[in-house]
Nucleic acid binder design. Sequence first.
DNA 1: TAGTGGTCTAGACCACAGC
DNA 2: CTGTGGTCTAGACCACTAT
Lengths: 250, 250
Amino acid sequence: MPTIDRRSDRPPYRQIADNLRAAILSGELPPGAKLPSERELAEEYGVERATAHRAVQELYLAGLVAPQQGRGVFVRTRPPVRRISRNRLTRRDQRGFYGDLEDAGLQANVTTTITHRSPPDSVAELLGVEPGTPVLVRDRHMGTANGPALHHVTTYCTPSGVERVAKRAQDNAGPGGMCARFEDAGYELVQQDIVAARMPLPDETTALDIDAGIPILTILRITTDSSTGDTLEVTDVRLAADRNELRYPI
Amino acid sequence: MPTIDRRSDRPPYRQIADNLRAAILSGELPPGAKLPSERELAEEYGVERATAHRAVQELYLAGLVAPQQGRGVFVRTRPPVRRISRNRLTRRDQRGFYGDLEDAGLQANVTTTITHRSPPDSVAELLGVEPGTPVLVRDRHMGTANGPALHHVTTYCTPSGVERVAKRAQDNAGPGGMCARFEDAGYELVQQDIVAARMPLPDETTALDIDAGIPILTILRITTDSSTGDTLEVTDVRLAADRNELRYPI
DNA sequence: TAGTGGTCTAGACCACAGC
DNA sequence: CTGTGGTCTAGACCACTAT
């Protein structure tokens, strides 16, 4: 019999959320299970419906439950996780993105956009250009024909980097991507990944099919010429954190 | 003069949040700036205060603003970021955690707890033990004397792994951690990191000093014996995503 | 004391699911 | 039709901050 301590510092809606969360994490409410309706919760705990709603909202925004209009609130089921290896995304010696999808019996769906625009200040610094300077930018949105979006890749090229591989960068960079083209041209590359996470912006929420309470993983991949130390390109990858993990062999 | 489209599908509180978010991202409301009070927003947009509150709440839960009771709502300032290198956390050939802090003029504050308990099922599988089997667990909570928490590290050891390095694991594992002890014993180690992100649970929120709308980065580091392929230990690291980035040289 | 955000009650209307 | 979650209004009390 759940109840609320009105004298507690913890507000009622949090106490209700705590109880529901504990039931979910203990397995008492397994993935896919239906929570009591907000009106039932309200009566059960002796609060207004708005308060019960806030409790459910708390769990929704933490990614634990998924409300469905007209049906009820259900415990989230974890979607299948893609475990992405270090060099799956750019290196030529991998079948890469497409092979990954073929294995799953899916058809790839890639849209590429080429623009000139000024990169974020942090990227401009890495590229060695003045903030606000437009550079060549390739946006690639990766998805499946009948499924959720997979990831979004933005590649920023330095002017000098573009010159070195000529027009290939303007169009499709070919198998292995830009890096393979740099290697074709005889450069020895050094790469590093900067991995971070944050909450998505609204446009990322729609572009990457991200549910509330799910962060995005971001990878900033920096490619430099090992002999000169020049940065050749910077690639920014964004993925939904509930469907993707990154694997780095050491 | 901001206004609301009552005929739009997008509810009023989201339209207000959109306007504020745009002002923040464009720099019109720079980090540290004070937002209009909820009562001001309510009057400005012709809505009730509760609706204005929801708009601000939206931004709060997305990690963009920080409300302060009695003072107002302020645009979040990004805390300084620690960029953590691949092997900073375990390998012996690094000064590691302590050196990192000394550089910043801080004093380390580590509390270690040793228990026997059953690991999460996913970890049990990696260790090759039955789910529910208690194993040796070392919890280390890392912080600074006068600052926010840094990270939390949980190490799960296989029974066979523990035998091989005897009692060292029970106590302080010594410089370089368990991995160094395995190497002392002549093992060749292979490691891989599985990086993911998720929203924190309430206890992690307090333990790691995490604000609303900030995800946590999780690293699952798996150490195996390269000759036999046995998993020797599994380490789970959790860090606040607004203060930490991971750097993986390739 | 006045202004701020945090929370709750009370009641209402809407869009949507399922019967 | 009933039950569900999504949202808004209207008003209230609290704790906290600053003057």
